[in-house]
Amino acid sequence: MIIDTAYTITRADLVAYANASGDQNPIHQDELAAKAAGLPDVIAHGMYTMGLGARALTAWAGSEDAILEYTVRFAKPVVVPAEGGAEVRITGEIRKELEDGLVEVNLTVTCGGEKVLAPARATVRKP
């Protein structure tokens, strides 16, 4: 295993991310809007969780522009309670060695033991 880390997502992170990304869908900030959409509570932007995956990949690679290709499927939402936030655990392993110092990495991204990104795969320049 090359990556084994965890990040906490808070409501304040989601507000900052909404402003930075332009995705102001209220289900990522407002409990009433989330519940009206049939969700148990506010959920993280899928792209926020995907961004944390990129953060973990580049921390391993030792270079923040090491990701050439990155693909995820959003399997389950990450529910972010108002108190304490949600912890996302990210592990990664090399799936395949490619040419030119590149590797294909498989990430396993879970919240509360359930896979939230599956699959999640990237082509990364090795450290």
């Binding site: 990304s21 995907m50 961004g51």
Partner: peptide, 16 residues
């Protein structure tokens, strides 16, 4: 964008 993802503000644009 970097700061929202918990990264230091200085640095390249994240992959997303």
């Amino acid at each position: 964008f970097r700061a929202a993802l918990g990264m230091s503000a200085e640095g390249p644009a994240p992959a997303t």
